[in-house]
């Protein structure tokens, strides 16, 4: 029996009169990679921002590890946020700090570890993402792919239970995109954390996902393993799959 760690119930959110989330229901399992896939501008980022309390829904509930977060005050919300790491779309590295300082930052602020240990942990994280020795570089000196690796190292720094990925492979060339996918898969298999990924990159994400949720017009229209989603007869699902433009698209296998 799989354990649900994030449960979204009937989530609604509108901006002005435009309804972006139209009754989302979603369950995310512990220790798995769940990919939320959907069109650009289709509300994926909005959904993710709700999961971590950056936005409040119009109505609906979000349960994280047994705690309903949509009505929490900032202080309680911060306790829940400590369980998360997040990799932002453009990595969101602090550009006033170098790579090492970026990875060390959450450790310095949230733990009372001695400096030496902080440095060692940050080194470990940078090694895991293949950037050991890049500590002195400034974010502006890094390529897009490297920034995302540092962002991942920073997200992993505090050893969180769950990691959110906002479009981890967008704006990367196909080769770098592959290495980031592999990095996500490898770190997840190594660390056994819960990964939630939002992306419009169907082909790439079907490679690494344990579960796929397809977001379409504010609703989850398909949910299951990549194989199950591919076989889903729903017209919108099939249209979305076809739109990847990959003849004989297989996906799924790693």
């Amino acid at each position: 029996m799989e354990e649900t760690v994030i449960r979204v119930l009937d989530l609604y959110k509108s901006f002005n009169s435009h309804r972006v989330l139209d009754g989302i229901n979603l369950e995310i399992e512990r220790g798995k990679i769940t990919v939320i896939i959907g069109k650009s501008g289709g509300g994926k980022s909005v959904l993710m921002k709700h999961l971590i309390g950056l936005m409040k829904p119009d109505r609906g509930e979000i349960w994280i590890d047994g705690v309903e977060i949509t009505r929490l005050k900032e202080r309680e919300l911060n306790k829940v946020r400590r369980k998360f790491g997040m990799l932002f779309q453009e990595a969101a590295l602090f550009d006033s700090m170098n790579v090492m300082e970026n990875v060390e930052f959450p450790l310095r602020e949230h733990t009372s570890m001695p400096l030496k240990e902080i440095r060692r942990t940050a080194d470990d994280r940078l090694r895991e993402v293949g950037l050991l020795g890049f500590g002195d570089k400034m974010p502006s000196e890094l390529s897009g792919g490297m920034k995302k690796r540092v962002g991942l190292a920073r997200a992993l720094a505090l050893d969180p239970e769950m990691i959110l990925f906002d479009e981890p492979t967008s704006a990367l060339d196909p080769i770098i995109s592959l290495t980031i996918q592999d990095l996500i898969k490898e770190t997840q298999m190594l660390l056994k954390k819960t990964y939630v990924v939002i992306s419009h990159d169907i082909a790439g994400m079907f490679r690494i996902a344990d579960k796929v949720a397809m977001l379409y017009e504010g609703k989850i229209i398909a949910f299951g393993t990549p194989e199950e989603v591919k076989k889903n007869p729903d017209e919108a699902v099939q249209e979305f799959l076809r739109a990847t433009g990959m003849p004989g698209f297989v996906g799924g296998g790693v």
Binding site: K49, I52, L54, N78, K79, R81, R82, F84, M86, F88, Q89, E90, A92, L93, F94, D95, F105, P106, E109, H110
Partner: peptide, 13 residues
């Protein structure tokens, strides 16, 4: 606009 402020918030800072 580069989400660095969101990153702080997400880190519970």
């Amino acid at each position: 606009v580069t989400e660095q402020i969101d990153a702080l918030t997400v880190m519970a800072l």
